[in-house]
Amino acid sequence: MSEHDITLKVNGRTYRGKASARMTLVDFLRDELRLTGTHTGCEHGVCGACSIIFEGQAIRSCLMFAVQADGASITTVEGLAEPGTLSVLQDCFWETHALQCGFCTPGMLIASQTLLDKNRLPTDEEIREAISGNLCRCTGYKQIVDAVKLAAQRLSGLNAPVKSDG
């Protein structure tokens, strides 16, 4: 079994590590780089919880071996906002109750962020298509669609965040 040195750019920072050929990218991110925001769900490309942005596009990190990503540039859910802050999209997930247990949330955020990156005001249909590869067992999806729509409108200046007193 071959062992490989891997250099990866994750959320703008360069990481180096070692992985056996069979280690998946999601396991490398979580277990070697300790970036545990990306979740491991089904491990065979069904649930979407492990979605990351690989070279600008959303992919499933359980369906790629870490060694394949050597030299690549990746964004994980940790890279969507500065530590301690929320992105507009994340804030809208909070506002519309688009998560309950939170297990699918990193994948949902990645899938919907890549949609918003190329489509400023997606329709409900386009949002549902964009998150079709991500399973959620809590919300029934409606609040997630609401969150993405709210974020799209907010990013276009069509609404403002709810003010909180406390």
Binding site: M1, R22, E43, F65, D70
Partner: peptide, 11 residues
């Protein structure tokens, strides 16, 4: 759900 061991080559 982990693959069996294998060698890897990038062609």
């Amino acid at each position: 759900m982990k693959a069996a061991e294998f060698d890897y080559a990038r062609a």
